[in-house]
Each structure stands twice: as C-alpha cells, then as structure tokens.
C-alpha cells in the first residue's frame, strides 16, 4: 500500500504542474476583469508548437519557450477581439478554443504519434541519479511553476502594478480616473495568460507525454477555468486545486499499474466528475459570498461625454 501511495504521490506534481501554470495565467487575466474561456485552445496550440519545435531538432527548453509564445499569439487574437473591438468575452473565448484546437490539428497533422525526447526528469540527469524517488520523478518546470505561483501571488497582492491590475478588474471606471490605461492593462494580462497557457500546453507534450497526439489537452483547459473559480482567484488556492485535480488524474494510471480492474472510461471521467463535486462543495462553503473580480466579463466603455 505504501508503495502504491509513494508511486502515486511521485507522479502527482507532473499532472498538477500544467494545471497550476495555466491557472496562474488565467488568474492574472481574470483579475484584470477579462473573462477568458480560451485556455483549452491556447494549451492545444502550445502543446502542438512545442512538440514540433523539439521534433525539428531543437532542445526542450526552446520547445517550451516557442510553445508559450504560440499560446500568447493566439491569446492576443482573443485580446484584440474582446479589448479593442469589444466583442463578447464568452463567445470569443469559445471561438478561440475552437480555433486553437483546429489550428493544432491542422499544423500537427504530420507529427501525430511520433515519440521524441523531451525534458528529462531529475532522476534521468547525471547529477540527480541518486535522488529519492519522490524527487527524482520531478523536473525543472515543476520547480519553475512553484516559483511562479509565489511570484504571481506577491506581484498581484503587493506591487503597484498588481494593484492597478486588480483595480481594472474591480472597478475599471475608478482605475480609469486614476490614470490607468484600462485597455493596455487588459491586453497585457491576456498576453500573460496566453504565455502561461502555451507553456502549460507545451509542458504536456514536451515534458509529460514526450509525444504529440491530437486532442491531448483533453479538457484540461476547462478544468483550469473551473480551478480558478474554485480557488477564488487566489494563487495559493490554485496550487491546492491543481494538486487535487492532478491527484485525481494521476490515480488512474497508478490503479491500472497495480492491476485494479476498473473501467477505463470511468477512470478517465474522474477528474471531470470531481470538478462537479468540488464546485458544488465550494459554492456551498462560500454561501454565495462573491469573490470574483467585481467587473469580470464586463466590457469597459469609458462613460460617453454627455
């Protein structure tokens, strides 16, 4: 039993890291008042681009970086539509998901199911061979994700720029009067969420799976959207949520490994069923207390000069 628990615990961070990274990006974006449903599409583009770059002979870090930039590019298209042209954020978000999935399928057509060597785990490197299993299974991006979480938390809560970003999400009119360029802040926030969403997607192909398969995001982008709400837009709680969902996801392969007969579809359903349960519980616990940024999803129009 302890062996099972240990091997399960060792794989949880690998499942949780992409959720954590993408969710942190989404927190930044939604704290600036932009309702962003695009992560599923952004992550797909990031995963595909990262895989193509690594298969093209570049190193895994280059793959991760280019994947992140690709995610940012798609995210900026979303940003252009909702911030500059004031399109509906929900509909544009859904359209961005469809576009991202389509683009990744189109450009990744020839790369499907071709394994490659991605980022090594600590245990696979020369210096880390002697690490205990719990650490040896991890990799550098997981550490990066944790650093990122602390950084985002401090930046949002303590810095002047973070204050201005939160002001945009809470009360864009007040921020506007205070001289904050609302549209620029929102565009930058959307870019940041695209960067992190793309990185999370590239992590899935370049680090976790080390292969690209169409549809490999498999709803994780939606879990990220749910995760941010569950976490109440707080970076610390995002970590808790990511571990919870990552843990549920990691359970299935471990159960199969020890030979528990379990319908594979039920297992695959687990993270999503968990999403539902967690939501009901979270909402009951919050008792309708409103923790969302007050102006989330509201298009800001500077008051017309009467």
């Amino acid at each position: 039993m302890s062996g099972f628990l240990l091997s399960w615990a060792a794989t949880v961070p690998d499942y949780a890291a992409p959720l954590l990274i993408a969710a942190l990006g989404l927190v930044i974006c939604e704290k600036a008042g932009v309702l962003n449903l695009a992560p599923e599409g952004v992550m797909a583009v990031g995963a595909m681009t990262g895989a193509l770059v690594v298969m093209g002979g570049q190193g895994p870090w280059t793959g991760l970086a280019v994947g992140a930039l690709a995610g940012m590019a798609l995210s900026l298209c979303f940003g252009l539509a909702v911030v500059v042209f004031r399109a509906d954020q929900t509909l544009t978000g859904l359209a961005t998901v469809a576009a991202g999935l389509g683009l990744s399928g189109l450009f990744g057509r020839d790369a499907v199911q071709k394994p490659f060597t991605g980022l090594p785990r600590f245990g696979e490197t020369g210096w880390g061979a002697d690490l205990p299993r719990l650490l040896g299974q991890q990799n550098a991006v997981i550490v990066l994700a944790l650093v990122l979480m602390v950084a985002v938390g401090l930046w949002l809560g303590r810095s002047r720029a973070g204050l201005r970003l939160r002001a945009v999400g809470e009360d864009p009119a007040a921020a506007d009067v205070a001289g904050v360029n609302v549209q620029r802040v929102q565009l930058l926030a959307i870019a940041a969420s695209g960067l992190l969403g793309g990185l999370a997607g590239a992590y899935l192909s370049v680090v976790s799976a080390q292969v690209w398969v169409e549809g490999m995001i498999a709803g994780r982008g939606w879990i990220v959207v749910a995760l941010v709400i569950f976490a109440g837009w707080r970076p610390g709680m995002v970590l808790v949520g990511a571990l919870l969902f990552g843990g549920a996801e990691a359970l299935m392969p471990r159960l199969q490994a020890v030979g528990v007969a379990f319908p594979v579809y039920i297992g695959a359903m687990l993270p999503y069923a968990l999403t539902l349960v967690v939501f009901v519980v979270a909402m009951l616990r919050q008792r309708g207390a409103d923790v969302a940024p007050a102006a989330l999803g509201r298009v800001f129009l500077r008051q017309d000069r009467h």
Binding site: L163, R164, E170, A173, A174, V177, A178, G179
Partner: peptide
C-alpha cells in the same frame, strides 16, 4: 463613492495618487 470596495483605504489612495503622476507605495 468612487472607491474600489474590495480594496483597503490605503490601496484606494495609492491607486488614485499613482494616476496623478506621483507613484506612491502602499
């Protein structure tokens, strides 16, 4: 009132002063 309800008094003041070209820490 033109105050951000979720912010503290100091945060509101810092936000407003920042706009007047005098960046101001919390």
């Amino acid at each position: 009132f033109r105050l951000v309800g979720r912010f503290t008094v100091a945060e509101n003041v810092a936000l407003a002063l920042g706009g007047a070209g005098q960046p101001c820490s919390l």
